[in-house]
């Protein structure tokens, strides 16, 4: 239903934003732990930012709309539809891949099958551990679907990710977590939780901060 999501977002206040931030923080913590284990490096997640933004600001959330980024979009199925978007700049992606594969990587020269699947795998792990905490807190089942990768302009990627997941209203709910590696490793990425319109309502109900009266 077009327009639907705007009506819901209009009802979201500080209480709902705080509740979402709380679960997103727990999810981010879990995700940081799993990623640290796999890479054998310390990975931190900042406190998630949760905002309702005008849709035209979405392409600029990360800064320049033309900046080149790697993004993996993982759709979710089950009780919460929508998806998760994991983004990295080129340098961070190279660093991450180097840690995983053990050789020097330059995705700007070559983004091959190995690079793609490694990045998708990381996104899967981040998504899985993040969603696990949602599943436990809300006592629901969320399943990650097959991920898709794009290496392109930040603005185009963000716009499409939000729209593909049903954020076609005038506003979008943006739940954003910054992912940081050890200072020396210079890995920095972003992690976006993008519930669709129905799931948002369901999540807020489950968290005890319903927007329906």
């Amino acid at each position: 239903m077009i327009g639907d999501i705007d009506d819901k977002l209009a009802k979201i206040g500080p209480i709902q934003l705080d509740a979402l931030k709380e679960v997103a923080s727990i999810g981010a913590g879990n995700a940081a732990t799993s990623l640290s284990e796999i890479l054998d490096k310390k990975i931190r997640m900042k406190v998630p930012q949760v905002n309702v933004l005008p849709i035209h600001q979405v392409p600029e959330i990360m800064g320049g709309a033309e900046d080149l980024i790697v993004a993996v979009l993982v759709r979710t199925k089950g009780d919460i539809g929508g998806g998760v978007l994991f983004t990295l700049d080129t340098q961070s992606a190279n660093q991450l891949l180097e840690l995983l594969i053990g050789e020097k990587i330059d995705i700007e020269k070559k983004m091959g099958e190995i690079e793609e699947s490694a990045l998708k795998e990381i996104a899967n792990i981040l998504t899985g551990s993040n969603l696990n905490s949602f599943s436990q807190i809300l006592d629901i089942s969320i399943m990650p679907d097959v991920p898709a990768l794009a290496y392109d302009m930040a603005g185009a990627i963000l716009q499409v990710a939000f729209m593909e997941l049903g954020h076609i209203g005038d506003y979008a709910l943006v739940i954003e977590t910054e992912v940081l590696g050890d200072v020396a490793e210079e890995i920095s990425g972003q992690f976006f939780l993008i519930p669709d319109s129905e799931s948002l309502e369901f999540m807020l109900d489950g968290l005890g901060v319903s927007i329906n009266g």
Binding site: I55, H56, P59, G155, Q159
Partner: peptide, 20 residues
């Protein structure tokens, strides 16, 4: 995104990061 602009004679009208 979701906007439009017009101009005349000189200058450039730009939109960045068109996806879908």
């Amino acid at each position: 995104m979701a906007d439009l602009k017009v101009g005349r004679d000189d200058g450039i009208i730009i939109t960045s990061g068109l996806g879908s």
